[in-house]
Design a protein around this nucleic acid. Sequence first.
DNA 1: GATAGTCCCTCACGCCGCGTGAGGGTCAAC
DNA 2: GTTGACCCTCACGCGGCGTGAGGGACTATC
Lengths: 257, 257
Amino acid sequence: MKMLTVNEVAKLSGVSVRALHHYDDIGLLKPASIGRNRYRYYGQDELLRLQQILLHRELDIPLSEIGAILDAPKFDRLETLHKQRDRLAKEAKRYARLVRTIDRTIASLNGDDAMKNAELYKGFSAEKQAGYEKWLIDTYGGDMDKHVEISRKAYAALSAAEKARLQDELQEVETAWAEAMKNGVSADSKALDPLLARHRAWVAVMWDRPCPPEAYAGLADLHLGHPDFVKRYETIAPGFSDFHAASMKAYAKRLAG
Amino acid sequence: MKMLTVNEVAKLSGVSVRALHHYDDIGLLKPASIGRNRYRYYGQDELLRLQQILLHRELDIPLSEIGAILDAPKFDRLETLHKQRDRLAKEAKRYARLVRTIDRTIASLNGDDAMKNAELYKGFSAEKQAGYEKWLIDTYGGDMDKHVEISRKAYAALSAAEKARLQDELQEVETAWAEAMKNGVSADSKALDPLLARHRAWVAVMWDRPCPPEAYAGLADLHLGHPDFVKRYETIAPGFSDFHAASMKAYAKRLAG
DNA sequence: GATAGTCCCTCACGCCGCGTGAGGGTCAAC
DNA sequence: GTTGACCCTCACGCGGCGTGAGGGACTATC
């Protein structure tokens, strides 16, 4: 049976030699055997246990608990896993919330608050409503007033949890979208389709009516033409307002074609 | 001017007295004045600075850096804020990824692996194929064999990466979906529309053909009738199988209406 | 003005998960 | 037998406090 020294284990697993010493000290991972020269030797079982340790360490579980978990019977582990999942989900949300807080702070430094954002998207900010309706009527003709009224009522009727959910959804989409841009994805790439589908669905919910491709493309132009939108997107990432509009239009074209 | 003692500041801010001592020691937050009795006295300015400190501490910024940030000119802070935002966004993603990993682990412990999921959802698991086809034929009449064959081939043609991506997508949707339920969003809420749109799109990909509203609603019933599905959803969260089906049906109704 | 109770202070050690030496043995290869 | 790469065992340090210990200071009540 091949035995491994600390250095070899370290290189295999990516953990430091000192960490192995430490795990030995605290009894988390004992070597399979110790030579008369006091060298630590690890076997296959120890490597497997180490994998488990590292996996749990990734989850920010204290080493003492990891030991307890690994030494516990298997059916307990599933429960532990569920608990960890919830804890991590909370952490993930906490961070997401912090990101939003920062975003709002940045936005408010730019003289832009959350309420205004919701209104922006709905297109019903008191000051802008006139201009927006004009645009809608110019574009689609007909009686938009009814739509506007319906939409406003529908949004007001949502519960706080639902509004929060929608807010989260938009945040998520925009973040991933800007991320894609930063990663060099081109605006007309099909890789953006899932994101754009989500965005379009989101817009449809805000409008409380379907968002046909032409309307979606029109929305892109609308954004470009409104300094408020441009500012909002540039705050997310420089260059994002153009990218945002370009990808919306490309997507609308794909939908129509 | 009202001066506050450590205890008062502690109660106001939620920080411990010891922490205030510590902040004094490291020079992060010095009291406005110190009495002859060596008591620390804090004023309004210190409270404001403390707020800032706590805000940054929430972001897991080391105290030494917080000091540097707060003592830096304001225009530098915006940049710092942007950097922190990116860092936190990465953390949030890391946690989200971990949650997904755990979800997959839990799922696989339940004997619920990717392949099986795909089969389940496609409704072509060998044992169930007969019953499912019967249902499809009853409902839509006509020649389903062709569809079945096409779908199976299409899925087989996907690369491993694409399959993994689909798996992740489903995982993401289901997690957010269950989350919404836990937060008290009602099954027929429009706030779920973006999620349901994603889900329906996902189903369409699995089927390799569009998923009309009636078929989507039918799928909900199919799920309720199949213990495998029910078990799968109940594993995600108790009560989720019903919520899942109910929201699918409500969504389908909205689509049709 | 004594007493009690609640505040305040200053040390100083402890926790976790190692990093980073110092000081000294051990191994394989030439 | 020498070199160089490993191995070992201490032992201190970091960050952000928690948690006493031991002792003054303030306030209210008798």
